[in-house]
Amino acid sequence: MIVTQDLCKIFRTEEIETSALNNVNIHIKKGEFVAIMGPSGCGKSTLLNIIGLLDNPSNGNYIFNEINVSEKSEKQRTKFRKGNIGFIFQSFNLIDELTVFENVELPLVYMGLPASQRKAKVKETLERMNIAHRAKHYPQQLSGGQQQRVAIARAVVTEPKLILADEPTGNLDSRNGSEVMELLKELNQAGTTVIMVTHSVRDAEYADRVIHLFDGQIVSENLKDRESIQKAVESLS
């Protein structure tokens, strides 16, 4: 489903050039649950953004669903993204002025679905996320865990093939954190591909596979058990 070839990303300011990704080659199959780990600044989020079609690579190819999307325009990327990719952020990124219901409805609005269909879909998703009773509330009125469940609801309401999560448990306590991880696991088991950036070894355990990045390069792949993950983390930091 996802193939990258010699993916590079360079950030330029007036004076310095920083290489965030350096010849990254990954291959993620449909239905996989992959965690990306690494110290701060190693390029995890950059990689996730490119995979999520939020950003273009400076160099190399990115093949998404057998289509090379590395040089698509912003407009085309938006088109690809719509309904295919769901995002979950550490800071939830809900819109304060919209209710829970409206937040979840948002991607469906932009897909151009009629109101009746939207209503049914949002209702169903909110029930699945166990947050339906909060539909008329505003994000500020919810706890962190509830907010993240709303964010996940928003990510899955379009039934995307791919879910990208950027440290989804980063702002949550451990109980709420594991609830969120369970939800992601469920979604994965139902057939959705999940790629998650995380610092947490415990969260990484939910994944089928862990990719380790260091200074923009992949240093190890295919780690599954807790011990080897821990070892890899220690060797890097």
Partner: peptide, 16 residues
């Protein structure tokens, strides 16, 4: 700014 970002991530076009 943030709201614009979120909306775009969720599929809003420039015009929208």
């Amino acid at each position: 700014t943030k709201e614009i970002g979120i909306r775009k991530v969720n599929g809003a076009s420039e015009w929208q």
